[in-house]
Each structure stands twice: as structure tokens, then as C-alpha cells.
Write a protein that binds this DNA or RNA. Structure first.
Lengths: 167, 167
DNA sequence: TTAAACTTTCAAAAAAAAATGAAAGTTTAT
DNA sequence: ATAAACTTTCATTTTTTTTTGAAAGTTTAA
């Protein structure tokens, strides 16, 4: 396989993987592109490479920056903006984990807490509901805490986790 | 909050959470419904409760069964089929993890291996591509292995992990 | 065997999500 | 101040995903 083909395959696959995990395909593709670029990349280049519109590029770059995994960079003498990705994988994973926790897990926990603490009458149905959502709350909370803890390690958390788990 | 409201809130929220993680909303809602039901539930009841068509119910139940987290049940004397969810949360997490690994992570690893092992010329660009995708391969492989290991514990893996991590 | 009671399939419709592109907005150099 | 060089916004269009519902398929009871 030659470079151009490999690059294309990587960008496409990363986009597809993103979709499967609830991330907009183009957003994942832009991220892939920036991950493998040595240099900061302009919007122009991104549009060209992925064959997307200016609006699309702009909005997805904004989203990537909101996630904290892509940064703007200004080149001296250049008027336009360039973009660069967080390339450290530990850092990347930590940021994604924190963001998904904040945006999705925390709100879900809030709902689980609410619904699992309703006053019930003595019916089996209601008792089981409270029990099951309560267990779910505990489980998700525990998982979220592990995520928190693990991301505190900051550097090389996955490698350290591997050591702990595997032994 | 009264029971009916809580139940509805739970089902809706579980559906929304599913969407954000790449799982069809209706599929997640059906799963939520089955999770909190004491009894096995018929397709008829699911259609009624979620206001969805027969085809939709049928297809999403099939998908849930393919994931191995919902089972068919036959009640004696009854002609129609009833459905019941895996309610043990450790078991549920293990199944989801294994399935996502098989369907999504393994294929992504295959691509990463392919593209990270191309023959490169001496250009910075190509060297960086191989290096970066190589690192990504190692990272994803390690994460997938942790998932494997953790799901081998089978019972109460999350609780055990909490102990390991927190200490 | 047949017909009633179910379930599945899949082409078509509907809904949801993403992308476009041009106008509006912003910044910078002169 | 203004105009060139950019970026953002958002109503509209396009694409993708999901849902529908009716026909085809299956199973069971009589």
C-alpha cells in the first residue's frame, strides 16, 4: 500500500469509527487528518482534502475545539488560522473521557438518581423499578468514578492500568 | 414524581443516551423498558408502550437479541413470544463490551495495523504518519486488551476494578 | 390441510442529521 | 475609514438513518 492510499484509508476508517460512537463522521475525519499532519493545517486545506464546504469545516473545527482536542494556531505573517490536533494519546483519551462524562454520563446519572428515589407503593412493579434503576445508578456512578480516577493519572494511565489489571 | 412519569423519563433518557453512543434510540428504549419489567413482555405491549410499529419493534428486538442482551421467552399456553432483558449489570456490560470490541474495535485495529506498516520513503510526512498510526494501534490494542481482561472477571468486575484503581 | 395467530421482511415514506453556500460578521493592514 | 482577507452563521438542500405497514413467511391447533 502506498502512502496516499494508506492516509485515505486511515481518514475514512476513523470517520466510520466516529459514526459508530456517536461522533459526526466529518468531525472524526478532520481529527484524523490533523492527527497525522506534522504541520498546522488551514481550513482551506481541510476543505480541499476532505472535499467539504467551508461551513462544514468551520462548524466541525469549532466542535473539535469545544472538545478541547484541536487548537488554533497563528503563523507569523499569515492572516488565516491554522489548526493542530492534540497528538498525545493519553491526553486525548483523558479529554474525550472527561467531556463525555460531563456531557452525557453526568446528566444520565442525574436522571437515574431522580427516578430511583421516587416514593413507591407496595406493587412489585414499582419496587422492581426503583431497585433496578438504583442498581443502574450505582453502576454508572462507579464506572464514572473509575474514569475520573484513571484520568487523574494523566500520564500513561492506560499503561499503568494494564500493569494493575494484568497482574 | 409518580411512577408513570419516572418510568417514562427513564425510558426516554436511556434512549437519548443510546443515541449519543451510536445506538438506535428505539433499540435503547426497548431495552430500558425490558430492564425495568418484572415480567417478560410481548411485542404487542412494546408497540403499545412506545407507540412504534410492528416492523420497528421486530427489527430492534432482533438487534437486541443479536447483541445477546435480550432473550425470547415462551409462556406455556401462549402462542406469542415474550421478551426479557439481561438484568445483571455486570453481565450486560461484559456483553456490550465484547460485542463492540468484536464489531468495531477489532476492525479498526486491522486497519491501523495495515496503514502503520506501509513502506515509507524518507519524507517527514510519511514517517510521522507511520509513527502516529503505530502509536494509535498500540494504544487501541492495549485498551482492547484491558477490556478483554476485565470482562474475564465476569462477576463484579467493576467493583473489583474500583478496589484496584482506588487504592 | 387449512386457517388463524403470530413474526419477519423490505420497499417506500418520514424523520433526523449533516452539509451547503452565500450573506453577515470580524479582523487587520493601510 | 475602508477594503481585503478571512471566519461564522443559518435557512435551505442533501444525505443518512429510522420507521412504517402491508405482503410474505412461519408455526400451531384443530
Amino acid at each position: 500500500m502506498e502512502f496516499k492510499e494508506a492516509k485515505n484509508k486511515f481518514v475514512q476508517s476513523w470517520g466510520a469509527l466516529g459514526s459508530q460512537w456517536g461522533i459526526n463522521k466529518t468531525m472524526a475525519q478532520i481529527h484524523a487528518l490533523l492527527m497525522i499532519s506534522t504541520e498546522a493545517v488551514s481550513m482551506e486545506e481541510i476543505m480541499e482534502e476532505l472535499q467539504i464546504s467551508r461551513g462544514n469545516a468551520s462548524m466541525n473545527l469549532r466542535a473539535l475545539m469545544d472538545w478541547g482536542i484541536v487548537y488554533k494556531e497563528h503563523k507569523p505573517g499569515e492572516r488565516k488560522e491554522f489548526f493542530i490536533a492534540e497528538k498525545d494519546l493519553d491526553e486525548l483519551a483523558v479529554k474525550i473521557a472527561k467531556e463525555r462524562s460531563k456531557r452525557e454520563i453526568k446528566p444520565a446519572l442525574k436522571v437515574l438518581k431522580e427516578v430511583s428515589t421516587i416514593k413507591t407503593n407496595k406493587s412489585e412493579e414499582e419496587k422492581h423499578f426503583v431497585e433496578q434503576t438504583g442498581k443502574l445508578y450505582d453502576f454508572v456512578l462507579k464506572a464514572d468514578n473509575v474514569l475520573d480516577k484513571v484520568t487523574e493519572y494523566k500520564d500513561n494511565w492506560l499503561a499503568k492500568l494494564v500493569v494493575k489489571i494484568m497482574k
